[in-house]
Amino acid sequence: MTSLQNRFNPQALAAGLVPQSREHWINVLLVVGLVGAAMLAHFLGERFYVNLASRIAIIAMAAVGLNLALGFGGMVSFGHAAFFGLGGYVAGISAYHAFNMTPVLGIGFMPEGSTQMLSIWLVTLLVSGLLGLVIGKISLGTSGVYFIMITLAFAQMMYYFANSWPAYGGEDGLPIYLRNELPLVDTNHNLTFFFIAAILLLISLWLSQRLMGSRFGAALTMAHLNPVRLATAGIDPRPVKLMAFVISAMIAGLAGALYADLNRFVGTNMLSWHFSGELIVIVILGGVGRLYGPLAGAILFVLMETWLGGVTQYWQFWLGLVLLGVVLFARGGLMGFLAGRSKDV
């Protein structure tokens, strides 16, 4: 009983008097597991698996972004591929122009692209945040099914636009001949690249943790659970949700820029509705609104895709079954199943 009281006592929590919860240890296990697997694969010379770990980290990061909107904000976006793809194209287009020494978008006064990841990331955060602002502003005028449909519609517009714009490969996509660079490290080294992805994943996880623990997070949670209560308290739910949507878009965009560099290629598949759907599946699999749910979901999803996909072309049937099981029997997703129900203070 005392431990239960302590758990609900914020002062005690803050002072670290409460033993860390089971969820905390599962979070640590997930991260250590992923990093350990990548390192093991590297030392065994299994390049494929090192890259697979990078893929998991990057997709998990995109899902962390979506989780902020979907899980914590209750905004079911079926269009996050728009941000992921946009990030990918920023990386691709920037590298393309740097390689050809032509101005970006062919406009005279624009710079000649860059192969520096840091600049690419900065631009990505900026443009995906802006796109998130536009899409979010318009979509948040609706709710429920309409919100789902309008976010999908925006992503599909981007998809068809990229498909029919020959300057950057159109439907063939755009190769990145050399991975973009970071100061001091060799991004072409597979394990190094994994660590870059893993660190950005951890930063986005840490950021969402801080965010959700803050006043903004409290408002966002209430905007999701009971917007009428939030408004009755004097806080307009709309700008709170919009801000969460924008941050969510920025994280998904950054993940996209990394994904393009991982594959040395950006194609319209990154903008496709399939990917938006996969991100939703990952968030639900992992546990909606659980901080590390997206990581758990991404690990499960990518492993199923890789292993079951190798055994049977009908792997998505099995994925569907697992998803059904989660929705019906484990409402908290994988994290809910492993760590029990989430707690608030």
Binding site: P10, A14, G213, S214, R215, F216, G217
Partner: peptide
């Protein structure tokens, strides 16, 4: 003050 993003409410 709902656009404060950093300080945890649980110890505020």
């Amino acid at each position: 003050s709902s656009f404060r993003f950093w300080k945890p409410v649980s110890s505020d």
